[in-house]
Design a protein around this nucleic acid. Structure first.
Length: 323
DNA sequence: GTCCAGGGTGAAA
DNA sequence: TTTCACCCTGGA
């Protein structure tokens, strides 16, 4: 759903349910919402017992909590905006990737040297289905950056140019392409985007004028969609693959960055120094339509292995267990 | 305080 | 195919 659609839907209902639960089959909010797919989710302080995140989906501010009950882990959603669009429960379900069958990934790759142990010990990581425009800008911002800074940049854009939809510090919509296009490169530089500012503006103009229809890429083939995205200045294969995987339904996309390349070299014997494009080809060949989710498990594992308290033996024992 | 790495890309060599 | 500049923030 586009921002415009969600805004018009919003006018229809003023009385959406403010609290609801979703059967998520064990979704883990931390790794899914704050694991590097999306950059506008914030951990609610002191929520160790029930990991809780605040964020905005479309034009609605929400609070997402992992609930542990007798039926297993489930997800509780609280609407923090004044109202929510019709069918908001379905919108959240869609956004969170609930319904994707993780058991199929397990059965196919249980014996995989890298992600086998990861999915055996930890099945809560899901692929989000984000808004393509926000996703595109987020990953343009990711170039030679780090996750804290990407979050800073993307949230600065929302705070300065989006509409307020809640009382929290980060409760803003992500601004539409024409709004961003109307500001200019210097404005984004002043927000701290650095050289990435000169990539965001042309992308915003292309989407705003209709020259680039991001939603149409959901219907296109993987290679066709990737070729389209890569035409944007500042969007190479890695960033295109992230947008394709996290917002455009391309489950075979396999973004390769320095971490993933290192993992592929270590676990699958790829020659050291192989270029990212070839590494991505190898992974797509190996993982097929599970590429995108496999890459997330790989990325998650690499991140954990770098944290001191997770040790460095890279075994299943170094991974968090299902609760 | 300094130093350095960080979910890359595009242009030049 | 390889090398380098591009911005600048957070953490060591």
């Amino acid at each position: 759903m586009t921002l415009a659609e969600s805004n018009s839907a919003r006018a229809d209902t003023k009385h959406a349910t403010r609290h609801f639960k979703l059967h998520s089959d064990g979704l883990d909010p931390e790794s899914t919402l704050d694991g590097g797919q999306a950059f506008r989710w914030w951990r609610v302080p002191d929520s160790e017992d029930a990991p809780t995140y605040d964020g905005v989906i479309g034009s609605t501010a929400v609070r997402v909590t992992a609930v542990y009950d007798s039926a297993g882990v489930d997800i509780a959603v609280e609407v923090r905006s004044d109202d929510a669009p019709t069918g908001f429960q379905a919108i959240v379900t869609d956004y969170l990737g609930i319904g994707s069958d993780i058991s199929e990934l397990r059965s196919h790759f249980a014996d995989d040297p890298c992600i086998g142990p990861a999915i055996a010990g930890f099945s809560g990581l899901r692929l989000l289905r984000q808004d393509p425009w926000e996703c595109l800008v987020s990953f343009i911002c990711s170039s030679t950056s780090n996750i804290p800074r990407i979050k800073l940049n993307v949230n600065s854009i929302a705070r300065e140019l989006g509409q307020r939809v809640g009382s929290g510090d980060a409760d803003f919509t992500f601004p539409a392409p024409d709004v961003i296009a109307g500001t200019g490169e210097q404005f984004l530089r002043d927000l701290g985007l650095g050289f990435r500012a000169k990539y965001v503006i042309p992308a915003a103009e292309a989407v705003a004028c209709g020259g680039l229809d991001l939603f149409a890429l959901r219907e296109a083939s993987y290679y066709e969609a990737r070729a389209t995205l890569v035409r944007l200045v500042g969007v190479g294969e890695k960033i295109a693959d992230c947008v394709l995987a996290f917002s455009l339904d391309k489950s075979e996309a396999f973004p390769v960055d320095r971490h993933i390349r290192r993992a592929l070299e270590r676990w699958y014997g790829l020659p050291e120094g192989i270029n990212n494009s070839k590494a991505s080809d190898f992974a797509r060949e190996r993982f097929g339509r599970f590429g995108a989710v496999a890459q997330q498990y790989m990325f998650h594992r690499e991140r954990l292995s770098q944290r001191a308290n997770w040790g460095g033996d890279h075994t299943v024992h170094a991974l968090p267990e299902d609760r």
